[in-house]
Amino acid sequence: MERAYTISIFSENSVGLLNRITSIFTRRHVNIDSINSSESENPGIYRFTIVVHTTEEQIKKMVLQIEKQVEVLKAVYHIDEETVFQEIALYKISTQSVAEGNLVETLIRDNNARILSMEQDFMIIEKTGHKEETQDLLEFLRPYGVLEFVRSGRVSVIKPMDELEELK
């Protein structure tokens, strides 16, 4: 059965490692849903969060292939229930349509969104949440004219306490 898996990879910070990792998916014709990279709590160790839709058999093999890469310290995979994850979305809409639609209160109170910037012509709204939540807001705003929309890759931390022991 195919489902979403979140892969967390801990690695050195080296040129081209991302290429090495993504080719493991490319080779198996697996599409990457989202990808994110940042330095982890350990200085010098980088963390990739990659979301793919695939089977458990396939994800196990791919994670072993990732972990086999010389510059990867550790790679693990989890289903959504085993992680806490979040995405951030930014929406640019015209200030006039927000004003006319009387949207500010709905945005802030009902959607937990924030206004990051307000200009004469446009405003930038930020919302964090799961994809469905940021998507719902996009659909809500669409009739008012969304000038730009962007959603980040998933960032995720894992719930099990013992899996990353060896990185400490």
């Binding site: 080296s14 040129v15 081209g16 290429n19 090495r20 080719s23 080779r27 010389v70 510059e71």
Partner: peptide, 14 residues
Amino acid sequence: IISISMPATKWNYQ
């Protein structure tokens, strides 16, 4: 050559 050889090398470096 780094990108080209990447999937076929155990490790590579420029």
